[in-house]
Simulated assay, not measured.
Amino acid sequence: MNLAIGPDAVGSVEEGPIAVVLAALARDDPAGVVAALDGQLHHGRPGSPAALRQQVGERLATALAEQSGRVARWIDALVASASPTGRQVACLLLVSRYRADREGVLRAAEVLAEDPHWEVREAAGGLLGTLLDRDFNGVRGRLEVFRNAKSENLRRAVVIAVKYAARRDKPERVADLLDLLAPLLHAEEAYVRRNLGPYTIGDALLRINPNETLRALRDWSRDRDPMVRWNVAMAFSSAIGSFHWPAAKSILERLAKGPEPLVRNAVAKAMRRCRQRYTDEVEDTRRRWLKDGDRAATAELMGPLKKR
């Protein structure tokens, strides 16, 4: 999905959705902002593009920055909005409120992370990621609480928060982020794990600190829990992970012997992705595995290299 929008889509102070938003701000009307966004068309459907919501959130945060009581009222109204758009904009405004009301913001983030609408849950994860970046030690403690919650939504919010925080390119934090994630490697719910190994570890943490992340993946590859080993294999099925075939090879060799279909399928997927970049090396490994009784089943799942 292309989130880039041109000036005509956003409008100016005189016209377009931003003008309507500013008018609603002048009227002290949070519902008017939501109506302006929901009145747009995005890909032919009612709704607004994420880039427009981001711009609106930034405009509101700037305009309300020096008005503590007013911004609190706006946040309360948007968090309680019947529209998912309003609740997403609330996530953007909550960042600016954190210094003044840390506990209130974290409570609101928890509520939004449990939202029935998936885009709101995603926005809440982004909010928590931004807060984790800005107050690493303080927010990490709250995420540890969420990590141990029964709710899969809250546990997934931790995974998403780490992914967003990793965008800030602070490799010195990766060891702590891996420790934060480690208990979640055992999660059986697909909603949690499908974002963990492939994306948060594979595409995010491997990118900013490959040495530390590869060390953790090697250690985790020896875990007896197949869910942990599934996450390890899937880290190399990502775009960034597939670049690390030289380091991944020994890890995938170990995992390919596992008896669990879940793990074998993950290894096969990772191998197919790595084969796109290291064609000859990975294909040679697959052919060797076919002659290995312990790994033949995984090699068969990979399938032969397709001729072009």
Rank of each mutant, 00 (worst) to 15 (best):
1 M>R: 15
60 L>H: 11
162 V>K: 06
274 C>W: 06
56 V>F: 00
43 H>L: 09
133 D>M: 09
268 A>M: 04
278 Y>D: 12
276 Q>L: 04
174 V>D: 06
97 R>N: 04
215 R>H: 11
73 R>Y: 13
16 G>N: 01
86 G>N: 07
108 A>L: 12
153 N>M: 09
279 T>C: 08
106 L>K: 05
77 A>T: 10
155 R>L: 02
97 R>T: 00
147 R>M: 08
293 G>Y: 12
139 V>A: 03
288 R>F: 06
79 V>E: 14
235 A>N: 03
142 R>D: 14
18 I>E: 13
280 D>H: 15
269 K>G: 11
165 A>F: 09
30 P>G: 06
240 I>P: 00
46 P>N: 04
77 A>Q: 13
232 V>C: 01
64 L>W: 07
119 E>C: 03
136 F>Y: 03
252 L>K: 01
212 E>D: 13
115 D>E: 07
155 R>V: 11
259 P>A: 02
182 A>F: 11
223 D>G: 00
191 Y>S: 10
146 F>K: 08
92 L>I: 07
55 Q>L: 13
159 V>T: 14
170 K>E: 14
116 P>L: 01
79 V>A: 14
264 R>P: 02
48 S>L: 13
101 D>M: 02
257 K>G: 10
92 L>W: 04
133 D>C: 09
194 R>E: 12
59 R>G: 10
268 A>C: 06
43 H>R: 10
82 A>R: 15
282 V>G: 05
77 A>E: 08
15 E>M: 15
51 A>V: 11
16 G>P: 08
121 R>T: 07
47 G>M: 03
4 A>Y: 04
207 R>L: 14
108 A>G: 12
177 L>N: 08
67 Q>H: 03
158 V>T: 05
298 T>V: 02
271 M>A: 15
91 C>G: 04
139 V>F: 01
21 V>K: 03
77 A>D: 09
269 K>I: 10
210 P>G: 04
16 G>A: 02
254 R>P: 05
144 E>G: 14
71 V>T: 00
299 A>L: 04
288 R>P: 00
247 A>K: 08
214 L>Q: 05
277 R>F: 11
59 R>N: 13
2 N>D: 09
156 R>P: 08
222 R>K: 15
152 E>Y: 14
222 R>V: 15
94 L>W: 10
254 R>G: 03
47 G>F: 07
192 V>P: 01
95 V>D: 05
96 S>W: 04
252 L>Q: 00
7 P>A: 10
